[in-house]
Structures are given as C-alpha cells and as structure tokens.
Simulated scan of single mutants.
Amino acid sequence: MGKFVGAIVGAITVGVGILTGNPALIASGASLIVGNAVTLLFGPSLPKPDAATTQKKEPVPARARGIGTRRVYGKVMLFQTSATGASVDVVAFLDGRSHAMRQAYLNDDKVTIVGGVVQQLADKRYKTGKVLAGFNLGLATETAFAPVIAALPGIWTPDHRGDRITSGYLIKNPVKSSDFLEVYPQADQVVLSAVFDMSYLFDPRDVSMDPADPDTWVKPDPLLDNPVLGLLWYLLTDRGIDYETQILPVIDYWIAAADHCDELVPLKDGGTERRYRCAILYEATAEPAQVIGEILKTFDGWYSQDALGRYIVYSGRYYEPTVTIGPSQIVNARHQGFVEDEDLYDELTVTYISADHDYAEVDMCAFGRGVNSFARLPG
C-alpha cells in the first residue's frame, strides 16, 4: 500500500530531531496505517515528568528513566537534620545505570564539586566547605555515601548503597547567623539537580554487545541518544520484547534506521550534526504507547508488527512502495472544499531540549503557511 504521510516533525516536547528537508514517508505493507502517523503528530503528548521540573518528596515516588542527555531533578529518599544541625538530603535521580554526570546545579546555579565539596560562587553563595554533594551512577553494586554515613551515624549505614540507582546527596552545614543569607540566600530551599548522560543502549551493530546482558552495553564513549536504539532499549528493558524471535529476524530494518539517524548532515553555519537525536525522560507510570510515541517523534519514525509478531521500524525518509493502490482498489472518495481559514492548520509549534539553555525546553523557530508548514531548529 503506497500512501504519502505528512512529515512528522521530530523533537516534540522531549526530543531533538535534526531535519534537513521534507522527509515525507511512503508506507508499504498492508499492516501500516496512515492514521497512526497522524495520531503521533496531533495526539496527546507524554506528560512532562516531575523529574524534568522539580524535586519531589513522596512516600513511594515513581521511578524515572531516560534516553540521551537531560537535566534531572530527583526524588528525595532521605531528608534529615544531623546532630550538628546540618541538613542532609539523599536523592534518587534515575532508575538504572547512567554514563556520566555532566553538570551539577543548586537551584539554577551551576556549581563545581571538588572532592565532594561544592565550590564557593563569586558572590560567596555556598561558601566552600559548608556545602557537600556527590553522585553515584548506579552500578550493580554501589558504595554508600560516606559523608551521609558520617553525618547520620546509625541512620544511614554502609548497607544503604542504592544499587542500580543513579543517586546523589546534598549536605548543607550550618553557618553563623550573620553569614546565613550570604551563604544560603534562599535559606533552606536549595535543590540539587544535574545533567546526566543517561541509560546505556544496546546497539545491534556492535557484535560485542549481548542483548541479554546490559553490562556488555557499557562503553567508554557510548552512543546514547540514537532514537532508534532508544526505542529498541525501551522495548527490551520495559516491554519485555523477546529479542531472538521479535527483533533479530528483522534486524536489518533496525540497523538501517539507526544508520539513517547517525548520518551527518551539514549545518547552516558550518559543521555537521547527526540527522536525528533524542532526549527522552519519562516515569515508570507513563503509558507505554505515549513513551513509544514520543520516541518515534524524535526520528520521524514509525513501526509495526508483522503477522509473526516481529517489530519492524522505519525512520523518517522515503521508502519505495511495494504495492500501489490504483483505481480498482478505490471504492469511495470525498473532497471538501471551501474550508474556513480558522480550520486550516497553519503553523506547527514544537520544542526541543537545548544544551545552550541549561537543558531546558525551548521553542523552535516555525515558518511557512499552509498544511505543509515546517518547523526547523534555530539557524
């Protein structure tokens, strides 16, 4: 079945898609439906997770997971005052192992941590030696935070390791009352967040990786934000898809789509950028269809299951149709004219995660009029 599908602009809400033209899709195969693509574009987006906006204190918080690089706020596992008057927080950021912590923040202040000590800012905020912080990246067997054990003996012990949890701690030591507002200008309302290179992804192009052994996915310089690999990771780790029977027999489709995402395309101001990238953050309570939809948007992608239950994926480009619909297959058609101006779709507004704006969501620059309008990355 060959039908044109209006191009889905990547990077809606939580991802980044690098578009270099109109990647109109042509569907092939009787099980592929144009309506699915329209639903992805205009349907409800994944709700913004708490981990993307604020720190939470809940008895049983939802786990957060992610693909690519994002700024993450945590769920507080412990908040306690020590015998010396220090405020102690231990925070869970992500479920699973992360690759790296890029940048730490106290509220919206970028801070540097040296040997577990937050370095003083130019205006004397967070006076050196008074604020302690650190992170664990979620190894299978972690090490409990020694400063927290020292501050809360008997409450926090070496057994509080946080295995397979990307976590952190923040200790705010007391200061003289005359210095308090200088060191802590926002009083005790100091929230620790950080930018993480998140989950390690399985890459079928790397023969050293075993889909059943996540420890083999750990690489010194991993490719973490390929959205096709991110979709595969989600299906394997969250949805329980059987790799041997549902992915491997059609692995060529996955490899072709992943390669397409990694193609380098020229930028307007020079240099190159990979065609499609993603930055997805979601909570374990999110609907799977919404998570999958958000990932697909970031590479203008779509997927289907064949009659054998195998998952076939396509990236945002032209695919030559294998079957053509002709006059003998068209049994009915209707044309509507004179559509009111307010009913015409004029402009598509999308957002993306910007490293230049502290990994916050910012709007793309939209242009063009009519139903074929596009939004592109600034520049």
Rank of each mutant, 00 (worst) to 15 (best):
R205S: 13
D197Y: 06
A37Y: 14
E58M: 08
D242R: 01
Q329H: 10
T166F: 04
D203M: 09
C278M: 13
E142V: 00
T54A: 11
D262G: 02
I330P: 03
R277F: 01
L41R: 10
I292A: 05
Y319K: 05
D188P: 00
I295K: 08
T157L: 03
P59Q: 05
V5M: 11
I26A: 03
G35N: 13
D225F: 12
Y314T: 02
A92N: 15
W156C: 01
G35H: 11
K3C: 04
I18D: 06
L308H: 02
I33M: 08
G271S: 06
E347S: 14
P49T: 06
L19R: 12
R275S: 04
H335A: 14
S354I: 10
T349Y: 12
A92Y: 14
T349F: 13
A194W: 09
L94M: 13
S98M: 07
A258Q: 02
H357T: 15
T324D: 07
E342C: 03
H260G: 01
V313S: 05
D306M: 04
L46K: 00
T324K: 13
D225I: 09
D179W: 04
I353Q: 02
A289T: 12
K297P: 00
P327W: 01
P185S: 05
G2W: 03
P249R: 03
D123T: 09
G35R: 10
R97P: 08
D221Y: 07
D242K: 01
G162V: 04
Q120H: 02
W302L: 10
S328H: 09
T54W: 03
D108Y: 08
L181V: 01
E294Q: 15
P49Q: 02
V148C: 02
K130M: 11
L32V: 14
L231R: 05
T285C: 04
D356Q: 14
D252I: 04
V190I: 15
A104E: 12
W233S: 01
G301F: 09
S208T: 15
K297Q: 11
L264T: 07
S31A: 11
Y359A: 06
D206S: 07
I312Q: 11
G35Q: 12
S199Q: 12
V323K: 14
Y126F: 13
Q120W: 03
A100G: 00
A375P: 05
V114I: 14
G309S: 08
Y184Q: 07
L224F: 03
D159M: 00
I149M: 13
V218L: 04
G10K: 10
G129E: 09
D109P: 06
K56M: 14
V195E: 06
V111C: 03
V362E: 10
P220F: 02
G368P: 11
S193T: 08
K130R: 13
D363P: 09
V362S: 06
F202K: 06
E342R: 11
D242H: 01
D356S: 15
G138V: 10
Q55F: 04
V265P: 02
V91C: 07
D163S: 02
L78Y: 09
P220Q: 06
D203E: 05
V91T: 15
A51L: 07
I155T: 13
M198Y: 00
G134I: 07
L267W: 00
Q329L: 14
T128Y: 03
W217S: 04
T84N: 14
F299T: 04
C365Y: 08
A86M: 08
P378L: 11
T322I: 06
F145V: 01
L46A: 04
A27Y: 05
N22H: 09
G337C: 06
S328D: 12
A30L: 11
Y314Q: 11
R275Y: 01
T322Q: 14
